[in-house]
Simulated scan of single mutants.
Amino acid sequence: METFGRYLDLHELYNEFINSKFGTLMEYSAYVGCFSQTDKISHSHKATREYLEHILEYLTSFLYRTEPLQDIDKIFLKLESEFEEQWANEGILGWGNKGTEKESEIDLDYYSTVEELVELGPEKLKQALAARGLKSGGTVQQRADRLFLLKVTPLEQLDRKHFAKVPHTKDGSNTAPNGNAFKEDMKKEIALMEVKMKRLCELLDEAFVRTKENAEKKLTLTYEEMEAEREEEEVQVDTESDDEEQQIYNPLKLPMGWDGKPIPYWLYKLHGLGQEFKCEICGNHSYWGRRAYERHFKEWRHQHGMRCLGIPNTKNFNEITSIEAKALWEKIQARQGVNKWRPDLEEEYEDQEGNIYNKKTYTDLQRQGLI
């Protein structure tokens, strides 16, 4: 079960793996752990390609469903362009061609009898025969006999019954002379699928970790416990959906908290949220609680109201919420006018005889030439 995208459901792929010729018997949790290590699988089986196709199909589908904003086509397009370059340079890990060709080459000049070839073992003989396009099946003795024929007979003159069957297209033409080109295309296709699969595994790394942990956890549970856990998850999902649909019961009209639910009543009383403060300057806007009321004097609504009245929003008008603030401002302006320093009357000047005059008198006497 994927549990709404939380876990990967790899059971079908797991059954396909353990029942295949290239697979090995293991626990499901172990399979999840080594799921992405397809380079350890033998690629000589036809079922390997189908297995990789099924993996790629499932992972792509899972990523589409869990992360719909991921542009998978763009990711694959970039991977394919990088893959072509790396394949040409034989930079794909585990898919180098030069090394395998050298390993499959057997110089028949060094062998004088079939028995010496038998000592090489079945795998080396199989690789050598496959590299030359010959049948690679049969016992070790049969393989050695078939390969030893090349010591006395050139490959071109060898009887066609010793050659492996070459795949044909619909029009009857050979797709791969000696089977090499066809095998090369197959290898390239499988390698590309592996690269795509590993990239998807990287994107779904967290889901793989959760899946493995869940699989290991289930190993310690009995069947009854697993059933109870599954039912609990289903009930939890149902209750969550029901909670979202139900209307919130709030008879006291308490303010909503960060979780979308009414805050506790004791918190409501602690902050005095039942007290209403109105401000005429703010257009009779209501503020609930002393804290909100004190903070509003520095907020945009109150500042805008003060600007409309032509009053500066200073400390003198703190805690004043009525329009009478305008009358107070006029009184302050008048008081500032009386106490204001006037230089023409209060600035003092002294003449040569030591007489003191204010600025206005001194200027008048100076104009008349009396000073």
Rank of each mutant, 00 (worst) to 15 (best):
Asn19Ser: 10
Arg210Lys: 14
Leu10Gln: 03
Lys269Trp: 10
Gly310Pro: 07
Trp258Leu: 15
Thr220Ser: 10
Gly33Lys: 13
Tyr7Asp: 01
Gly121Asn: 02
Asn19Ile: 05
Gln352Ile: 13
Tyr28Val: 02
Lys340Gln: 15
Gln142Met: 13
Phe22Thr: 05
Leu150Gly: 05
Ile72Asp: 01
Ser29Glu: 08
Gln247Trp: 05
Phe4Lys: 08
Leu328Asn: 09
Asp145Arg: 15
Gly133Tyr: 02
Asp344Ser: 11
Lys183Thr: 09
Arg160Met: 03
Lys359Val: 08
Leu345Phe: 08
Ile323Glu: 15
Leu270Ala: 12
Glu84Tyr: 13
Arg6Cys: 05
Tyr249His: 12
Cys279Arg: 04
Ser20Arg: 01
Ser44Glu: 05
Thr153Tyr: 04
Ile320Thr: 11
Tyr28Ala: 03
Thr321Phe: 07
Ala228Ser: 09
Phe35Leu: 00
Lys315Ile: 11
Gly257Ser: 07
Lys326Cys: 10
Gly5Thr: 00
Ile332Ala: 07
Cys282Glu: 05
Leu147Ser: 01
Ser173Gln: 13
Val152Asn: 13
Ile190His: 01
Ile323Phe: 07
Ala130Glu: 09
Ala292Val: 15
Leu254Ser: 04
Trp288Asn: 11
Lys161Trp: 11
Leu273Gln: 10
Ala191Ser: 08
Thr100Lys: 09
Lys326Gly: 08
Asp107Asn: 12
Leu221Glu: 02
Thr153Asn: 09
Pro262Ala: 03
Trp95Asp: 14
Asn316Val: 12
Pro255Met: 01
Glu348Arg: 15
Leu158Ser: 04
Arg160Thr: 10
His54Glu: 11
Asp109Gly: 12
